[in-house]
């Protein structure tokens, strides 16, 4: 499993693209929104939690179709399926690799973009914490979507259509944490629910994803 993680990370670094693309997209969202909304700091500060969360979510979405597509095309998914590695484990490792390459950099970059969007000072800690807790769920759910659409010729758009409704609870609780944190309200409830969704998704969804992969390889 560790070998698979190392291989996926190495591939991501060598190929480039996947790694920086999500971050660049996230930055673009944070630049374009003020251009569209107007420069008033009050308005921007109010919508910053939502914009940052939606931006992170869309940046995550961008690289989902690459999770399995390349392995499917070159045949290594077949070989992985016949290897002693359980498919559930392989899927979980792929989610982890996707998070390390997309979710983690987005989390670390978010405070800088918070400054651009005039996020109130109280919100920064909650922003990083909520993204750190929530983006793993985005990767795990996205892996499920990628598993469903692997092997489809034009799966990219379908993947977004399948995954976005599944992102709703994570988005709501994640943005709620930042919104409440920035306003100085208590955040324990949404934070606990966000963590629960991530834990539940990480624990159960790999089984569904592995089942979908097996069906698609048939």
């Amino acid at each position: 499993m560790i070998a698979l993680l190392i291989r996926d990370l190495r591939l991501a670094f060598r190929t480039g693209g996947g790694f920086g693309l999500g971050l660049a997209f996230f930055l673009l969202v944070a630049v374009l929104v003020p251009l569209g909304v107007g420069p008033e700091g009050g308005t921007l500060g109010k919508i910053a939690p939502g914009i940052l969360w939606v931006g992170a979510l869309l940046a995550c979405l961008l690289s989902l179709d690459r999770i399995f597509a390349l392995d499917f095309e070159d045949g290594s998914l077949d070989l992985l399926a016949t290897s002693p590695l359980p498919m559930e484990g392989a899927v979980a490792v792929k989610s982890l690799a996707h998070w390390l390459v997309t979710g983690l950099p987005l989390t670390l970059a978010a405070p800088a973009l918070g400054i651009l969007l005039n996020l109130p000072p109280a919100g920064y800690g909650w922003l990083v914490l909520s993204l750190a807790l929530g983006t793993p769920a985005l990767s795990v759910i996205g892996t499920f979507g990628a598993a469903l659409t692997v092997g489809l010729k034009r799966g990219g758009l379908l993947l977004s259509l399948l995954v976005l409704p599944l992102y709703v609870p994570t988005l709501i609780f994640g943005a709620e944490v930042v919104k409440r944190g920035a306003a100085g309200m208590e955040v324990a409830t949404p934070l606990a629910l966000l963590a629960a969704i991530t834990a539940g998704a990480a624990g159960l969804l790999p089984f569904a994803s592995a089942a979908a992969i097996r069906v698609n390889l048939r």
Binding site: R10, R14, L79
Partner: peptide
């Protein structure tokens, strides 16, 4: 071992 080699081009 299938038709495809399952090789990663960048490795």
């Amino acid at each position: 071992s299938s038709h495809a080699d399952g090789l990663k081009a960048t490795l």
